[in-house]
Amino acid sequence: MRTTEVTLHTGDRRITDVTDACAAFAADVGGDGLLHVFLPHATAGLALLETGAGSDDDLAGHLDTLLPRDERWRHRHGSPGHGADHVLPAFISPSLSVPVDDGRLALGTWQSIVVVDANADNPRRTLRLSLLAG
């Protein structure tokens, strides 16, 4: 198994496309296998999503409906509504796996791998990529 870590700066973006970083790692390792993508953070998750056609904006907007940034949360440190950030990974998992065929991600035509991060208090993220050869 080969593993690497990628440092991201998400800033105030709620959706950050990491497909290119994942594809570059898979191409570097080569061969067939399974790419495991893991985000070791308590306030962010990963998703397969179509980007650039509005789905990313829809997801970002609906996060506020699902997890409002107000004072209802018991977890209260950080910016207002930060408790919602700690609930996000229960809905959007911090890990996912993608098949790799001959060094290429076997994603669907419109699928991209994205980090979903509503936590502006921590804009620096580490993405851990592991490829298990098959």
Rank of each mutant, 00 (worst) to 15 (best):
M1L: 06
R2Q: 13
R2L: 06
T3G: 10
T3N: 06
T3A: 14
T4L: 10
T4M: 15
V6S: 06
T7P: 06
G11I: 03
D12R: 15
R13K: 14
R13T: 10
R13M: 10
I15G: 01
I15L: 01
T16F: 08
T16A: 07
D17A: 08
V18C: 04
V18H: 10
T19S: 12
T19M: 03
D20N: 12
C22T: 09
C22N: 05
C22E: 04
A23M: 13
A23Q: 14
A24G: 12
A26H: 14
A26G: 06
A26L: 09
A27Y: 13
D28I: 01
D28F: 03
V29N: 09
G30E: 09
G31Y: 13
G31K: 07
D32P: 00
D32K: 00
L34G: 01
L34R: 11
L35T: 11
V37L: 08
V37T: 11
F38P: 05
F38E: 01
L39V: 04
L39D: 09
P40R: 05
A42R: 04
A42P: 13
A42G: 14
T43M: 01
A44E: 08
G45Q: 12
G45F: 14
L48I: 10
L49D: 02
L49S: 03
E50M: 06
G52K: 14
G52C: 07
A53D: 03
A53I: 06
G54Q: 05
S55N: 12
S55R: 09
D57M: 06
D58L: 00
L59D: 02
L59E: 03
A60T: 00
D64N: 11
T65R: 08
L66T: 02
L67M: 00
P68W: 05
D70E: 09
W73V: 02
R74C: 00
R74H: 15
R74S: 11
R76G: 09
H77E: 03
H77M: 02
G78S: 03
P80Y: 07
G81F: 14
H82Y: 07
G83P: 09
G83K: 10
A84S: 11
A84M: 01
H86P: 05
V87W: 00
L88Y: 04
P89Q: 08
S93H: 14
S95E: 11
L96N: 05
S97H: 12
S97L: 00
S97A: 15
V98R: 06
P99G: 01
P99N: 07
P99D: 05
V100T: 11
D101Y: 05
D101R: 11
D101T: 13
G103K: 06
G103T: 08
G103I: 02
R104T: 11
L107Y: 15
L107M: 13
G108P: 13
G108K: 15
G108S: 11
W110L: 08
I113L: 15
I113T: 07
V114Q: 08
V114D: 02
V114I: 04
V115W: 02
V115G: 02
V116M: 02
A118I: 10
N119E: 04
N119F: 01
A120C: 10
A120H: 14
A120F: 13
A120Q: 14
N122D: 10
R124H: 15
L127R: 12
L127E: 09
R128D: 06
R128I: 02
S130T: 15
L132I: 15
L132A: 13
G134D: 13
